[in-house]
Amino acid sequence: MLPAQEQFAQFSVDGQRLYGLLHIPNSDDSSQRPAQGWPSVVLVHGFTGNQGGDHRLLPVLARHLAARDVACLHFDCRGSGISQGDFSEMTVTREVQDTAAAFEYMRRQPGLDPERVMLLGFSMGGMVVSLAAAEVRPHRLALWAPALPELWLPMLRGGFVPPVVSDYGGWPVGREFLQEVTRLRPLEAANAWATSMGGGVARVFHGDADQTCPPEFGVRYAQALGCDAVGIPGGTHTFENFSSTEMLYTETLRFLTGG
Rank of each mutant, 00 (worst) to 15 (best):
R116H: 13
R116K: 15
G121A: 09
F122G: 00
V128I: 15
V128F: 09
V129L: 04
L131N: 06
L131K: 02
A133K: 02
A133H: 06
A134K: 15
E135F: 05
H139E: 03
A142M: 02
L143I: 08
L151G: 03
W152L: 12
L156Q: 09
L156K: 15
G158V: 13
P163N: 09
Y168I: 14
Y168C: 07
Y168D: 07
Y168K: 07
G169A: 13
G174C: 05
R175S: 09
A189W: 01
A189Y: 03
A189H: 05
N191Y: 04
A194M: 07
T195N: 13
S196F: 04
M197W: 01
G198W: 13
G200F: 00
A202S: 15
R203M: 13
F205W: 09
H206K: 07
C213P: 00
P214W: 07
P215K: 11
E216N: 05
E216V: 14
V219L: 14
A222N: 02
A222I: 10
Q223T: 14
A224C: 08
G226L: 13
C227H: 02
D228R: 15
P233D: 07
G234I: 08
G234H: 10
G235E: 06
F239E: 02
F242S: 12
S243N: 11
S243P: 00
S244V: 07
T245Y: 05
